[in-house]
Each structure stands twice: as structure tokens, then as C-alpha cells.
Design a binder for these strands. Structure first.
Ligand code: SF4
Ligand code: SF4
Lengths: 137, 137
DNA sequence: GGCAATCGGAACGAATCAGTCCGATTAGCT
DNA sequence: AGCTAATCGGACTGATTCGTTCCGATTGCC
């Protein structure tokens, strides 16, 4: 019940990116140096974030990344799903992927989608704008 | 962002146990046969649940397990914490365990305890009594 | 006192994660 | 236009944790 280090680092990097304003040009090296995340790991993360639609990527010299949405429009759930995949507590909650051996006569299965929704809602209630501020609410 | 198979199986077994009433004598073999969880895995799970204080264990022939609380008093968070350990989204949210390299100048760290609390609250709002019923709310 | 049944912890194999590296692509300069 | 340099993108390796399985310790019953 804890998120992976990759997802955690991705949140830290996105918060740092949000602090640069919506139109700033960013590259992996700058973000890695600013947050302390190892550079190769940072490269992997921005790649995933870009393919998920949270960042716009530009290749070549002078390229880099850029936030596609406002900080208040990006939530923790978005970042986590971009890095870790869909938020589903159990195997049966995820559409497709029905490889649970107990699924045929599992009594708690009908409730799991609601539980996943609740957790996802808790994560979606936190926006990047909140995280980028130093002090808690 | 998904719970492990062990925790999932533990929830299924606890729901099955709750359906037997509060004072019923249960053993690992019965629960495994009823839920479909492999017997050795079920043994490991009931052991952890007992050491966490959710079940009372009795050794020897004619022994077994027994629920210590009412079904409405046991929440998903309790079961997950019993199997997976404390619910903490990040390394810094957990008291002790401060082995994060970015912890010195991490801007999002102050918010993570609140996020962990929100997720834990979402899980704590679901009781075993709800899960043991076949139909969702 | 012997026996059978059950809990408890220790060991093994598998899967995923975290980290690292090198190739493909493109802007900028000569 | 050709070359160079800088950056993204995907593929590979090692490490950690998860999941499973097995066998020994303990206790009630006969
Ligand atoms: S069917 Fe039951 S045991 Fe299988 S993943 Fe869903 S909740 Fe878990
Ligand atoms: S200090 Fe920052 S990077 Fe480290 S675990 Fe906490 S939130 Fe994550």
C-alpha cells in the first residue's frame, strides 16, 4: 500500500516543474539537478510523463519539455497513473486483466471497484498547485 | 498503486470469516477451502492477522482462530496494515525510516502525511460488515 | 503416555522494480 | 547544404520484494 519510488520522484519533479510557470522550457538535466533525482531515472520519468500526455516533448538541441495543463488541472492521480499504470486496488477492478483464480466465487469483488474509486478520488483531490507550495494547507 | 495479492486474499478470507458469525471456530484449512486461497498461503495470512491482533489463535488439535472484534469494527485499513505494514504513501510519511535521498530539500514532503491520511481514511470507511454482504451499497 | 491436528517460522523461486546504458532524432552552427 | 552537438527514446542488467512452499514446534484429545 505504498507507491513506488518512481512515482514519488515523478511527483517531486512535476512539482518543481510547476514552480517554473506554465510556459517554461525544461529539460531532464535541469529537473534532475534541481530535485536531486539521478539523471537517467529522471529521463525515464519525463519520457513516461510525456507519453501519458502530461508533458509536451521537443527533441533535438534546444528541445525539452513543457507542461501541457495548468498546475491546478493536474492531480496526483494523473501523475501516478502515468508512471504506475491505472489505479486499481485489485486485479478484478481493472477492466480487462481478469486473471484472478478466485474471481468465480469471490464475495468481495463487487465492492472493489467502489474502493478503487474512493482511493482514486482521494488522490485526485490533491492538485499540483497545492504540492508546489512549500507550506501545507 | 495496487495492494499486493496477500492483502487481497486476506480481505477475502476475513470476509468469509465474518460470514460465520462472531463466535465461530475457524481454522486455516476451512477458510482456504471456502475461499479458494492455497492452503500454505492461507496459513501465512492467518498467522499475520493473528499477530496483528485481529484474530485470536489457539494451537493444538481442535484449535483454530476466532474474530476478536465485531465485523463492523474491522476496516479494510486494519487488514491491509496487518498484512502489508503501515499505510504510508512515501518513505518520509512513515515515522522512522528516513532513508530518502531527496528528503533534505524536498518541497512536497510536508504534504505527503496529509495524502497518506486521506488514503487511509478512504480505506477505513469500508468495514468488514459491508464487504461480507454480497450486494454493493 | 501416545497420537493427531494445528499454528509458527524459515527457506526457495519468481516477478517486478530501480537504475544504467547506448542508439535515434532534431535544432543550431559553419 | 553538411556537420556537430544536444536531447529524447527504448532496450538491457542487477537488486529488492513478493508469492509460494515446506518442515519443525506446540497443544488438545484419546
Ligand atoms: S475477484 Fe476477489 S480475490 Fe480476485 S482480485 Fe477481485 S477481490 Fe481479489
Ligand atoms: S522526502 Fe520527498 S522524495 Fe523523499 S519520500 Fe518524501 S516526498 Fe518522496
Amino acid at each position: 500500500m505504498k507507491l513506488t519510488s518512481l512515482a514519488d520522484y515523478a511527483v517531486v519533479m512535476m512539482a518543481a516543474a510547476a514552480r517554473h510557470g506554465p510556459g517554461a522550457r525544461l529539460n531532464a538535466t535541469m529537473l534532475a539537478d534541481e530535485t536531486g533525482v539521478p539523471l537517467p531515472t529522471a529521463q525515464k520519468l519525463v519520457g513516461r510523463l510525456a507519453s501519458a500526455g502530461l508533458l509536451a516533448s521537443a527533441r533535438g538541441a534546444g528541445g525539452g519539455f513543457q507542461l501541457l495543463k495548468a498546475a491546478s488541472e493536474i492531480t496526483l492521480a494523473d501523475i501516478i497513473e502515468a508512471v504506475e499504470g491505472p489505479i486499481a486496488m485489485t486485479a478484478c477492478a481493472e477492466t480487462a486483466r481478469h486473471d484472478c483464480a478466485l474471481e468465480r466465487n469471490c464475495q468481495v469483488k463487487p465492492h472493489m471497484s467502489a474502493v478503487s474509486g474512493a482511493v482514486r478520488g482521494a488522490l485526485a483531490s490533491v492538485s499540483l498547485a497545492t504540492l508546489s507550495q512549500g507550506e501545507p494547507a
